[in-house]
């Protein structure tokens, strides 16, 4: 397909990228291009300048932090997350989730930053990063680094805390609670494909659940924590029965969209299923490993 006429620049540094983005109206960062190139083909948004950030060295690093957490550059690809020893060592679930996004070709180009900035409610990484309580590090030309909790970052499709002229530069993922764990579960159209309902969870405690974060995706424009289920889990024994009891009925209060693949009622019925599986995986008690 023929794209509309567009300019292209490939800066070497974040500074140069921010200069290009702030000087020009209609400038957009190009990361893996696995969504943006389709947007350009369909001419649904007009972009005048593509600022290719995909090869900027400082956006391509994965750093294992001394606290046991990770700092991940925005342009690290899914395949690199999947293959990273550092990610596998501290956050194996993040590596597994990235390793099951769609297909090899998309994993070889798609980036963690692009996945977050596209902010499609069906995207794999946003709910996991909210559950893991990640911090999004955003830079602008004038303002230095702005840190936004993942929980406050996602607003809806193409809408995030990243403003005009800004770049998401890296994502800080804190260490997993110890004792504790993370879980993730998806009901999708087919293996590794578009999600109909998804949940991610983080649990602290061993034997008894001390604290839990339960995040649902595909139920609203952005990933949402289910504070009711979190409260019901707090202090509960770490058993599949207790988790099922905490998950029961959580779909009732939700108003998810309905579409050709899943009606509103079907999505409501899926909410306790994915939430239960994600939390059970987090407490090491069954559940759906990768979803």
């Amino acid at each position: 397909m023929l794209l509309e006429s567009v300019e292209y620049a490939r800066p070497d540094t974040v500074e140069q990228a921010l200069t290009l983005l702030s000087q020009r109206e209609g400038a957009a960062p190009l990361a893996g291009g696995q969504s943006l190139v389709n947007v350009l083909k369909h001419r649904v948004a007009s972009v005048e300048l593509l600022v290719d950030i995909s090869r900027i060295d400082e956006l391509r690093r994965i750093e294992a932090r001394s606290d046991g957490g990770l700092e991940i550059g925005a342009c690290v690809t899914y395949d690199e997350l999947d293959g990273s020893d550092a990610v596998r060592a501290s956050h194996p679930l993040l590596a597994d989730v990235a390793g099951h996004i769609e297909d090899q070709q998309i994993r070889d180009r798609g980036t963690i930053g692009g996945n977050c900035c596209l902010s499609d409610p069906t995207n794999n990484l946003p709910p996991l990063l909210v559950a893991l309580d990640a911090t999004m590090n955003i830079r602008s030309r004038s303002g230095g680094v702005r840190q936004v909790a993942a929980e406050d970052f996602f607003h809806g499709y193409f809408s995030t805390a990243v403003g005009e002229g800004e770049l998401l530069c890296s994502i800080t993922v804190p260490p997993l609670p110890s004792p504790g764990g993370a879980g993730y579960s998806t009901v999708s159209l087919g293996a590794d494909s578009k999600a109909l309902a998804r949940a991610a969870a983080l649990v602290r405690g061993n034997g008894v659940i001390e604290d839990a974060r339960v995040v649902l995706a595909c139920f609203s424009a952005a990933p949402m924590r289910h504070h009711g289920m979190e409260a019901a889990l707090r202090g509960a024994p770490a058993t599949a029965e207790a988790v099922a009891a905490a998950a029961a009925g959580i779909g009732d209060g939700l108003d998810p969209p309905g579409d050709v693949h899943a009606s509103t009622d079907y999505r409501r019925a899926l909410a306790p299923v994915v939430a239960r599986r994600a939390v059970c995986q987090a407490i090491g008690n069954g559940g759906d490993e990768r979803g």
């Binding site: 291009g33 190139v37 083909k41 070709q105 998309i106 180009r109």
Partner: peptide, 22 residues
Amino acid sequence: TGSCGACSVIVDGRLVKSCMML
């Protein structure tokens, strides 16, 4: 549209869909 893989090539050792790259 990046869905079928017929345009797959290898770029710098990575498998990519060449309709999804400039």
